[in-house]
């Protein structure tokens, strides 16, 4: 059992026993050793199932919706960014959320791992050792460099230690230098406009409009999404039609601008492997450049729309 898991359990137990919070949201072991699932502990006993390791990829902020009582969230940097964003947008009161920060050096991309290991292979356990991920299988141990099997967004993470937190379990780790140089966008940047259009045509044609991306996203909390509306019908409903898919994915990227925590949940959830993080990161770069805004990186943060105001405007067009 890892050190971090022990600490998370102990702290969660303490929080529930003292009555400081009514609920702790964390992770527990999933259906396989390389998966986790969200875990909701409302009694001290239930904290025994909590874990925290390289498999805990889910952004738990998605489970925080207008809590009436105090909840604690075992939050990675991206979870914390999302929490601050949704708090800022009236989806929770700051006083009702205890951000129990945990450092994170990247979380496992299960698909990528299996591909790397060669499927099928029986995995018994996964653990981190230094910069490596060690996979114990029926045919012995395999060691892989962490960067090769974590989610792509983890390799350019700017919040490996939660920027905003109420406490921190474990030692802080510095942000990745790649966070601000956007190497992930290099390929898209190098394309001509026609190539980019063609690239997205290929990618977005695959979309089946299952909205797994939306469901996984803590920032998608509208009672009714624009894409589901009939009056007006912004995008044709149902998948398989490129233009309707384009409208959905572009509209989604627009709506997440300045609100995305770069957790990668949307892309991780996409069953047809659309590189959604490219759009999200593209918009993060744009909002950072134009408005000096990065979602959820500070407690005092204003909403992006507030930065458009006359009193805040720095660049004046025209």
């Amino acid at each position: 059992m890892s050190d971090l898991t022990d600490k998370v359990r102990a702290r969660a137990k303490e929080l529930l026993e003292s009555g400081e919070v009514k609920l702790v949201i964390g992770h527990a072991r999933g259906t396989t050793p390389y998966r986790s699932r969200p875990h909701f502990a409302s009694t001290p006993e239930q904290t025994a199932d909590l874990i925290h390791d390289v498999t805990c990829a889910t952004n738990l902020a998605v489970y925080v919706s207008k809590p009436k009582e105090k909840v604690a969230v075992i939050a990675k940097g991206c979870d914390a960014r999302s929490l601050i964003t949704i708090i800022n947008e009236g989806q929770a009161e700051r006083g009702n959320v205890v951000i129990v920060g945990v450092p994170c050096e990247g979380k496992l991309d299960e698909g990528g791992l299996l591909e790397r290991l060669g499927f099928p292979r029986q995995v018994k356990a996964v653990r981190e050792e230094g910069e490596e991920v060690v996979v114990e299988g029926t045919e012995g141990e395999v060691r892989v460099a962490r960067d090769e099997v974590v989610m792509p967004n983890c390799t350019y993470c700017r919040a490996r230690t939660p920027a905003v937190r109420d406490e921190l379990i474990g030692d802080p780790v510095p942000a990745r230098e790649e966070a601000d140089s956007y190497p992930d966008l290099a390929e898209l940047d190098a394309m001509t406009e026609a190539e980019r259009a063609a690239f997205w045509h290929e990618q977005l044609s695959k979309c089946i409009r299952c909205y797994a991306c939306r469901n996984a996203c803590p920032s998608c909390f509208c009672p009714e999404c624009f894409v589901d509306e009939y009056h007006p019908q912004w995008a044709l409903h149902g998948g398989g039609q490129f233009r309707g898919n384009w409208m959905w994915n572009i509209g989604r990227a627009q709506h997440l601008a300045g609100r995305c925590s770069a957790c990668g949940s949307c892309q991780r959830g996409c069953p047809v492997d659309i590189p959604l993080m490219l759009l999200n990161r593209w918009m993060e770069r744009a909002t950072n450049e134009a408005f000096d805004h990065l979602a959820g990186m500070s407690e005092e943060q204003k909403q992006l729309a507030a930065l458009f105001r006359k009193a805040e405007a720095k660049v004046e067009h025209g």
Binding site: K66, G90, K302, Q303, A305, A306, R309
Partner: peptide
């Protein structure tokens, strides 16, 4: 019924004409 309470309008309005008020959402029982 469509409002998420995100306050994007509230921070945008030049006239402070938008107030955030409580709504009794019977469907969501909250």
């Amino acid at each position: 019924n469509l409002c998420s309470g995100c306050r994007a309008c509230y921070v945008t309005c030049p006239y402070d004409a938008i107030e955030m008020t409580e709504h009794d959402d019977r469907a969501a029982r909250m």
